[in-house]
Design a protein around this nucleic acid. Sequence first.
DNA 1: CTGAAAGCGCTTACAG
DNA 2: CTGAAAGCGCTTACAG
Lengths: 341, 341
Amino acid sequence: MTTIKDIARISGFSIGTVSRVINHSSDVSPATREKIEAVIREQNFQPNRNARSLKQIHHSPVMIFVKGTHNIFLDAILEEIQIQMHIHGENTNVTFLGETDNAVAEAVQISMYQRPKGCIFLGGSVLNFQKDFSRIDVPSVLVTADASCLGFDGLSSYTTDDYSAAYEAVSYLIRQGHREIGIIGGNPDSAHEGNVEKRIAGAAEAMRQNRIDFAEKERFEPCGFLMDDGYAAVLRLMERCPEITAVFAISDLIAIGAMRALQDKGYRVPEDISLIGFDGIPFAVYTNPRLATIHQNVPQLAKKAVEDLLLRIKYQRAAAHETIPYRFEPGESIASPARRS
Amino acid sequence: MTTIKDIARISGFSIGTVSRVINHSSDVSPATREKIEAVIREQNFQPNRNARSLKQIHHSPVMIFVKGTHNIFLDAILEEIQIQMHIHGENTNVTFLGETDNAVAEAVQISMYQRPKGCIFLGGSVLNFQKDFSRIDVPSVLVTADASCLGFDGLSSYTTDDYSAAYEAVSYLIRQGHREIGIIGGNPDSAHEGNVEKRIAGAAEAMRQNRIDFAEKERFEPCGFLMDDGYAAVLRLMERCPEITAVFAISDLIAIGAMRALQDKGYRVPEDISLIGFDGIPFAVYTNPRLATIHQNVPQLAKKAVEDLLLRIKYQRAAAHETIPYRFEPGESIASPARRS
DNA sequence: CTGAAAGCGCTTACAG
DNA sequence: CTGAAAGCGCTTACAG
């Protein structure tokens, strides 16, 4: 492995000078710079990053922590954030964390030796932030969960108003004439993530205001976040409550699984059963029928997160907590309930 | 920031001894170990990874390089590989690379300072390997493209036989009675990736053997790899060649977009137009109708890759190149062509 | 079993 | 503008 020492030896300069050209310091004569750069190219030399960050004061790029690897919705936000960062001339460094990891604890560790300018968290439980965030000392923003209640100076948050969105979704179903409404999704294990609870609470409130008795024990069927989970969950639900005419799925993936399950069992969507999802992932537009959903504003979530973080890094702005408007997307999967005798 | 020096000072031992307990060296008395561990816990000390890997001989975990961030098929392989590695008690470190990056060049750089035991590449162009792989000196495997022609001692490859699979897919269409067959997908820009060419070549060969004249200029419509791309491409194709009765899409994502486009234009799938994709992603089972496809054996690709790499790391086995059987999945999107007058 | 010391590859005041 | 030297946080022979 060729090191800075080799470059120094070959070029005939000291390692200090070589280091200066690597770091684009202006204190090097053009002639020297050129010679050294030639040697670097010729030797195909890459400075050892470990050694560098061991000394360097410069902070490394903004780090993005994504909770879970196969979350199509977070993937979309990530992509947008990277685009936005690029527009602002900033690099990013992405770390995917397992479902079971405590994202914050991991981030603490990484930020200790990487020294990022700032952190963006996509997903993650508010409880974990409460527990470990105090050890992160760079500006950070959480996207997808509301951290305002935590009161950390260093943590902003941008999120969709899950409660209101679910309230609106279910209100719409009710306005279409549905009164027998089921809910699927929401893994009991990850209950502490918060979003699921808020969506269920919003849905329940919509029913309550319309004097529909939401018997959660019967009408709510929990399941994981994959299509298969939605497939199985809706069947369990329909078997238990065959009178149901509309289903609110806690995520689009779950809804897509449910749609296919219903169709396989001979239900027509939406003529027999209406269906609405949550998120607004690209696939929702490609199902047949197109899925009604709550479309979260991914570009806006990303834009706000990036601008917030950059302003705080550069101008020490204060952390903020904001809710980004969603859009109800009627799709083709909702109809008025058929008169059944 | 607390360092090993602080731990040494507080515990009253030397930094050498502290280092030994951190590294689980056996040459430490139980009493000392306990005292030092207590201080580490109490101070919440995390050793600086940069400093560590600067010295350490131990290689870091296997690195996995994934080409592109939103490739649902590679994501599936990645997940399987991580499961397999976990079974073997190995950790992994995943790096997602941009579409435009030269994965191998990036891997070279990273492997220089991370010193992984081995590398797994998911996707990536064979040309880039030819150019830069020689600088990687740890066992590596490429999944998704055939590297046998490159002749590197350090690079295995496991892949689906794209040519034969496409040949089989199109042969099936022909056996169903189709003779007017179109192909969509395959971005001309990423043409050097190889897979696309092989799939098209296999399809063309199937036609040739059945004395169907495949006018590639007319019957092949290139496009990107997203659903939207497939949506637009199939419409361009049908407009140009309205006589087509069957479409082979180079990937499932493209096929799903095409399916919806055809349905939106009033074509019935499969009654009017038959459709087949490639990959076997989970969504293919959730479209309506279910998508016919070439199901790549993801678990097997992952398993082989992992076992190969581990054997080579531990027992200096030689690199190998193997093709993993695929499965033709008839789905519900293929029918015999309607008699049109 | 433990400590003192050299050194990993680099950066950065400090002189000149 | 350039070099010599200290030091980043850690690991690991080498003594004892």
